[in-house]
Design a protein around this nucleic acid. Structure first.
Lengths: 211, 211
DNA sequence: GTCTATAACTCGATAGAC
DNA sequence: GTCTATCGAGTTATAGAC
């Protein structure tokens, strides 16, 4: 009953423990802690309900592991980019590029994080979030400097960061509504979201162009 | 047991029925259909669990009423603005203004809609969404015309609409994460979000300025 | 390690007194 | 209309055989 002993090659490990974890990952992301049922997780993993408890003891513990892995997966790449010492323009391009790629590969993760954090804030902050989150100070300073140097239009650095993230993340989070309002089918929406990278980058740079 | 007979002056009606509705509203918005419990709703309303069923028969029916009222509350104002024949510039200003006001008054609503729509899509589309959603065609056409006339930079109209909505909505949806990453306290975050209206408007117009 | 069976519990819903 | 008491379905969790 060692849930903590992760084998090195996570990806192609089809041990029972891993199968359970993968099934749980899928269902928790889709339905949240309350919506996902242990029976369904067991079914999807192709094993018996009792085994879930054998490997992970409780639903909460299983959830905790899944949520942690989700959070810890995306953070380093964001962190590396935002905290790097690349020049501002390059940094923005890279950030948008990596971030949208990351979300396209895991489109349900942002909504999972946001809504679970709203529903179970204590649990999330205490048990799941890492000690060290990406620190935006370097980026904010770079923006200030660029404003002072006149290479970009005067903007509040924090609002700018928030704008960039909003433009990257929100369309994926609100995808079902977007499809309805813009009258898109699934494939059209896929196509449309694929264009976001260039569209967002252009939009941001246009907004930063000094007068 | 008439849940449909809403008294005209909804707001200052502290009938039992209304108290239940308000408590349910608060909890469903916060925790969603699965997370909210009837016992908790009863407690918050200061009445007994049995009364919930007396007035609203089932949890699903109660949820349906709450969700409908939420959806139907915001739509007309969005619709009026986006479908109006105001000139493009004014329309964008008004849209951002109304939209951010609406969300500031009901900061949990967008996340509620998005996540419930993801978790219970059939129920939401069939029972809760109104027959007629806001139609963006007029707006999209206006953008095309403005691009053709050279009054704004060439942009894809659909992406522009999505950008505007993203900039308005996302910061409120992701507020807890924003607070953590930017290291803000509640009051600071309030203050910061208050600035979004002008910040977003400026950002959009800067991005649309023709070269 | 994996399964069947079942205990223990949560929660939505109902019965019935007042 | 409102309450107490309780039922019954669905879920998490455990016991125990293999």
């Amino acid at each position: 009953m060692r849930a903590t002993e992760m084998t090195p090659n996570d990806k192609t490990n089809d041990s029972t423990e891993q199968k359970i974890f993968d099934a749980a990952h899928e269902l928790f992301v889709q339905k949240g802690l309350d919506g996902a049922k242990m029976q369904e997780i067991a079914d999807r993993a192709g094993i018996n309900k009792a085994l879930l408890h054998y490997y992970y003891r409780t639903k909460d513990k299983l959830y905790e592991m899944v949520a942690k892995s989700i959070i810890h997966q995306g953070i380093p790449i964001i962190q590396k980019t935002i905290e790097s010492d690349l020049p501002l323009e390059e940094k923005i391009i890279k950030f948008v590029d990596f971030y949208i790629d990351l979300i396209r590969r895991n489109p349900f993760i942002p909504l999972f994080i946001i809504s679970e954090m709203n529903k179970h804030p204590e649990q999330f902050i205490e048990k799941i979030l890492p000690a060290r989150l990406p620190r935006p100070e370097i980026f904010l300073k770079q923006v200030e400097d660029a404003v002072a140097a006149g290479t970009i239009r005067p903007v509040n650095p924090q609002h700018l960061l928030l704008n960039i993230i909003s433009l990257c993340v929100f369309p994926f989070v609100a995808r079902p509504i977007m499809q309805m309002v813009l009258g898109m089918q699934k494939t059209e929406a896929d196509q449309f979201l694929k264009q976001r990278k260039t569209e967002v980058t252009e939009f941001i740079f246009a907004a930063l162009r000094p007068r």
